[in-house]
């Protein structure tokens, strides 16, 4: 494992912990998109299905369990927790799941590395992860006041994706037969979606003002 991959995974882990910490301690999910969180739970459920029959490393298995556990916990908090669920702004979080789910499913059935159940599900999870942040970005744009933790959560997620691209470039030049077009294209599109957010995030950081996205 190279340093970019490790840094990417740690950033990903940090993003999830920041979100869980916010929800658990402040008992509020204001500004958090349940739609995005549900899509991530589905992304991890479909991608890490191989946890039972494909052992890669102890590290991978532990990380998969953490991402599965944390994503389903976050969904549970927003939907079921007595106090947290009151802060969920349903009227602002209006993005339609199916809008993203169906195209991803169709695309995974048509464009995949191998037409097997496991492989189609894995590919579906890649496509879905690429666009799962959209409901959250739309919600951020609608919410005038973005609190620090929500901003940091999205920033860390974007950083994780950018680090994964560096990891692919590194692996491409250091490993033989390391070619994963589908992963790379889906991952690059995913990272580009953060471009706008990154721009405003750094602006607010540089000028030391509250993060606000233009409508």
């Amino acid at each position: 494992m190279n340093i970019f991959r490790l840094a990417g995974d740690m950033t990903h882990l940090a993003s999830v912990l920041v979100l869980l910490l916010k929800i658990h301690t402040i008992k509020s999910c204001a500004g958090v998109s349940l739609k995005t969180q549900e899509l991530y739970a589905l992304v991890f459920a479909t991608r890490y299905l191989d946890i039972f029959f494909n052992f890669v490393s102890f590290y991978n298995t532990i990380m998969k369990l953490i991402f599965l556990g944390s994503s389903f916990s976050i969904v549970w908090y927003i939907r079921r927790h007595r106090i947290v669920r009151r802060s969920y702004d349903k009227d602002q979080d209006t993005f339609r799941h199916l809008f993203l789910l169906l195209p991803c499913l169709l695309l995974a059935l048509v464009i995949n590395e191998r037409f097997t159940f496991k492989e189609v599900l894995w590919t579906f999870s890649l496509y879905l992860e690429a666009v799962a942040i959209l409901p959250q970005l739309v919600l951020l744009q609608r919410t005038r006041n973005i609190d620090n933790l929500t901003g940091q959560y999205v920033f860390l997620l974007g950083a994780y994706r950018a680090l994964y691209i560096l990891n692919w470039i590194y692996r491409y030049f250091t490993e033989e037969h390391y070619v994963h077009w589908i992963t790379w294209i889906a991952g690059t599109i995913q990272t580009l979606l953060y471009g706008d957010f990154f721009y405003y995030y750094f602006q607010s950081w540089k000028n030391n003002v509250r993060l606000e996205l233009p409508a």
Binding site: V56, S57, M63, F67, Y164
Partner: peptide, 10 residues
């Protein structure tokens, strides 16, 4: 060997 369907990333 071919790494086409080896998924060792998260």
């Amino acid at each position: 060997g071919s790494a086409v369907t080896e998924h060792d990333e998260l």
